[in-house]
Design a protein around this nucleic acid. Structure first.
Length: 849
RNA sequence: GCGAAAGUGGCGGAACUGGCAGACGCGCCGGACUUAGGAUCCGGUAGCCGAAAGGCUAUGGGGGUUCGACUCCCCCCUUUCGCACCA
């Protein structure tokens, strides 16, 4: 007899798993593969239970799949480059690498203490040269194929982080990381041509049935496909190169109502015209253009325009229309210019109203009578075309086709598809990232570093001032190099890559983490890929998950893999709140897992987090709930502790062929019913909370079974003489053994340490890891009892408890034998008895009269 | 404004394809065992009526489909999340 002492037994099993390399895997394994992955971690210092929830969910699935006969790859690594390391270095006078490696060591210990079953021999850290080497390799491949390119552009600049942000990293005009308002800068930047895959990424989103709809919707919106047309509005008096303004519209059918042209402030013609204008005009234009770009992007400022004094020709009406600059037109989207149709667009209507521009109605809702005059409200729905010459009377949908064709025939426009998605800017003016492997030579210009010279190592020395230029530019030994082409002096690129590059393909590196000649062996990715089950926070729904889908296609097109979609199934786990807020160090509401392990052990934490809510939902941390889970584990412990001498070891037969009494049969049914429920709740559903509750029911049933009489009572306190374990009857022992062993096995994904210990105490010295999932006996489970409602003339008059083995005929006779049914149909003629419902549940309806 | 998801006891949550609403746990109440109990074991716990048997009312609100609705359909309310001038 021994009390449940999680701390010592957990340590024992963690050491044993490590010693026996219990979770390491190879590719030459006859079992089917299963790749289970949680989003790798940024090594920020200390993991709190909110972080750990992610890994616990993946671990339950990985352990369960192992038991069910899969060769399970379950690796872990570190997203180790990034700004916080650099900021910490500035603050603490240490090196980012020191800070990062110390954090990794600590967090790795935390993960081991909570008992996550990782193949640690495959661990990777993106800040190591043997990893970022392959970022550089891939960059060169993308450069060769035109998927990486450099251009000058206005970029989002975070003045606090002192670096560029991708569009995806700007939230409401603010930096995703620090919340500082983002400003615009003109810089030479490297881009990845993700837009080349826009259509494919969008289309394939329909073929990801095991992703949450929410994530797919977000990705679809982010890619933002619109079908429309580009149309040229000629400039009668160009005085310069372009002799027209091209607009993008999804509503070419309203073009007869286009009474003005609006240019975005970034439109090149605006700059050109400004330069040509007289000083007074230029000054007012500049004043207008000085509006804060980020304020404009929030959409909360009033619509304002500036009349350029120029005109263009509407190519359909041949009328002259004024050209304005408008603060609400986005320079980066479409052509940066739009046609203003005040009759049928809310924004254009407001604009026309404000500046007294004419409004023309060209669409009537429905096919009804034509009303005249300008509408007080713009109508932007479908309808019938009016005031549009030869197109009058067409439905708007037809008009879009006909007018597009007309524009194409006249060479003044074409149908196009416009995406909201833009190319991915990857240059970062920071130190702690992958150096971009190109050099600049006065003679040969931009020259890629030859693949044989990779990796371009990040120099150890760098000064961390937090100034707004690239720290690498301060390191002459790094910057000054020779040109691979001509051997003359050259300068290295001093920007580093966005860390999202690192995280966009790490799941392939895990398949072959030590490969020194390629990012991975295609055969190994062919074996393990794609990731079958991927767990992570919904905050990565757009950034990481679109970039990874993009990179998977790049590798595919390089001939490195056959995989389009890197993640077959995605689970976005909910956050862990404390006192109603997300855990964060600054809020002071973090729950440190090591404190909790000290109190109740890792298994109780794991069980609690899995039990308290479905994995997708956020949970509110509760110490009382945690204690409840500890109590449950202690309850299981006591049960097994008191029974194992009787039911453990060899020589006890399976209960299959033995004659059982009612209670034994009921327990056996419960055992197999629980196996069925837990199995289904774990796979294919991942309803971990209900799986745990099914196990709790089984434990309750076991206690009730043993407590039928004083002599078989279990579960009292250790020193209580009433707790002498169980009976004599071989059938009882056989049924109990089956139930208890199934319980231990099924609890092991949740509470692996305790399960191992109990399994050992039951007389199995070889450890649980290699043991299979408990066998499910359908025969036993089919004898399950169900309750069938019996209706008489449409009202439920009785409920029959029957076995689902009962046939329909038997069910009918049972219904008629039920006293209450007899009472309800007494003296009446039974017209009809109906049996309905699916397998397992049947409804008897009796029509009497 | 647009889009998505959700609304069930004191609380977290269950209910799988339309079939006993509230599994399981927390909390609370009681009993047993005890010098003691914040341990353990056993029981109770949606609301209302009733001594009980039992009955009635209940899944945000209102309609509908159905023998039967937490579940499906329509309208409304609330909350959360995402997008937000994308022409």
């Amino acid at each position: 007899m021994a009390d449940y002492k999680p701390q010592t037994l957990e340590k024992k099993w963690q050491e044993r798993w490590q010693r026996e390399r219990a979770f390491e895997v190879t590719e030459d394994d006859p079992r089917p593969k299963f790749y289970c992955l949680e989003m790798f971690a940024y090594p920020s210092g200390h993991a709190h239970v909110g972080h750990l929830r992610n890994y616990m969910i993946g671990d339950v699935v990985a352990r369960m799949k192992r038991m069910r006969g899969f060769n399970v790859l379950h690796p872990f690594g570190w997203d180790a480059f990034g700004l916080p390391a650099e900021n910490a270095a500035i603050k603490n006078q240490t090196h980012p690498e020191t800070w990062t490696l110390e954090n990794i060591a600590h967090m790795k210990g935390q993960l081991q203490r909570i008992g996550i079953s990782y193949a640690w021999e495959r661990e990777i850290a993106t800040c190591m040269p043997d990893y970022y080497h392959w970022n550089q390799w891939l960059f060169l491949k993308m450069l060769e194929r035109g998927l990486a390119y450099k251009k000058r552009s206005s970029v989002n600049w975070c003045p606090s982080c002192n670096t560029v942000l991708a569009n995806e990293q700007v939230i409401d005009g603010k930096c995703w990381r620090c919340g500082t308002t983002v400003v615009t800068r003109e810089l030479e930047q490297w881009f990845f041509r993700i837009t080349q895959y826009a259509d494919e990424l969008l289309e394939a989103a329909d073929r990801l049935p095991e992703w949450p709809d929410k994530v797919l919707t977000m990705q679809r919106n982010w890619i933002g496909r619109s079908e429309g047309a580009r149309v040229k509005f000629p400039l009668p008096d160009p005085k310069g190169q372009p002799d027209h303004i091209e607009v993008f519209t999804t509503r070419i059918d309203t073009i007869y109502g286009a009474n003005f042209i609006l240019l975005g402030p970034e439109h090149p013609l605006v700059q050109q015209w400004k330069a040509q204008a007289d000083p007074a005009f230029r000054q007012t234009l500049e004043k207008f253009l000085a509006q804060d770009r980020t304020l404009r992007m929030t959409g909360e400022i009033e619509k304002e325009g500036f009349d350029t004094g120029r005109t263009a020709i509407n190519p359909f009406t041949n009328k002259s229309v004024p050209v304005w600059v408008a603060n609400f037109v986005l320079g980066e989207y479409g052509t940066g210019a739009v046609m203003g149709v005040p009759g049928h667009d809310q924004r254009d209507h407001e604009f026309a109203h404000k500046y007294n521009l004419p409004i023309t109605i060209v669409v009537q809702p429905g096919a009804g009578a034509v009303s005249s005059g300008s509408a007080a409200e713009p109508y932007d729905g479908p309808g019938t075309i009016v005031n549009s010459g030869e197109f009058n009377g067409l439905p708007t949908s037809d008009a879009i086709v006909k007018m597009s064709e007309a524009a194409e025939a006249r060479g003044i426009g074409e149908r196009t598809i416009q995406y909201r998605l833009k190319d991915w800017g990857i240059s970062r003016q920071r130190y702690w990232g992958t150096p971009i492997p190109v050099v600049y030579c006065d003679k040969d210009g931009m020259v890629p570093v030859p693949a044989d010279d990779l990796p371009v190592l990040l120099p150890k020395v760098a000064e961390f001032t937090g100034r707004g230029d690239s720290p690498l530019a301060q390191v002459p030994e790094f910057v000054n190099t020779t040109c691979p082409e001509c051997g003359g002096p050259a300068r290295r690129e001093t920007d580093t890559m966005d860390t999202f590059v690192d995280s966009s393909w790490y799941f392939y590196r895990f398949c072959d983490p030590k490969n020194a000649s390629l990012p991975f062996d295609p055969d190994k990715v062919g074996y393990w890929g794609p990731v079958d089950f991927y767990v992570g926070g919904v905050e990565h729904a757009i950034l990481h998950l679109i970039y990874s889908r993009f990179f998977a296609r790049v590798f595919r097109d390089l001939g490195m893999s056959a995989i389009d979609e890197p993640f077959t199934r995605l689970l976005t786990q909910g956050m862990v709140l404390k006192d109603g807020h997300v855990m964060s160090k600054s809020k002071g509401n973090v729950v440190d897992p090591d404190d909790m392990i000290e109190k109740v052990g890792a298994d109780a934490i794991r069980l609690y987090v899995m039990f308290v809510a479905p994995p997708e939902k956020e949970i509110e941390w509760s110490d009382a709930g945690l204690e409840g889970s500890y109590r449950f584990l202690a309850r299981v412990w006591r049960l097994v502790d008191q029974l194992c001498e009787t039911i453990g070891g060899e020589g006890i037969p399976a209960p299959g062929g033995i004659e059982l009494d009612d209670a034994e049969r009921a327990l056996r049914r419960k055992t197999h019913d629980t196996i069925r429920r837990v199995s289904q709740d774990l796979d294919p559903r991942v309803h971990l909370n209900t799986a745990v509750s099914a196990l709790m029911e089984l434990v309750n049933e076991l206690y009730a079974f043993c407590n039928r009489s004083e002599s078989t009572r279990v579960g009292r306190s250790i020193d209580d003489p009433a707790t002498i374990g169980v009976a004599e009857r071989p059938a009882t022992i056989a049924v109990l053994k089956e139930a208890v062993e199934a319980l231990i096995l099924m609890i092991s994904p949740f509470a692996p340490h305790m399960a191992e210990e109990l399994w050992e105490r039951m007389g199995h010295p070889d450890g649980i890891v290699a043991v299979g999932w408990p066998a499910f006996d359908e025969q036993v489970s089919r004898a399950e009892q169900i309750v069938v409602p019996v209706q008489v003339n449409g009202k439920v008059r009785a409920r029959l408890t029957v076995s689902i083995e009962v046939s329909e005929d038997e069910l009918k006779s049972l219904a008629l034998a039920d006293p209450q049914v007899v009472k309800n149909v007494e003296g009446k003629t039974i017209r009809k008895v109906v049996v309905a419902g699916g397998a397992g549940s049947r409804i008897v309806s009796i029509v009497a009269g």
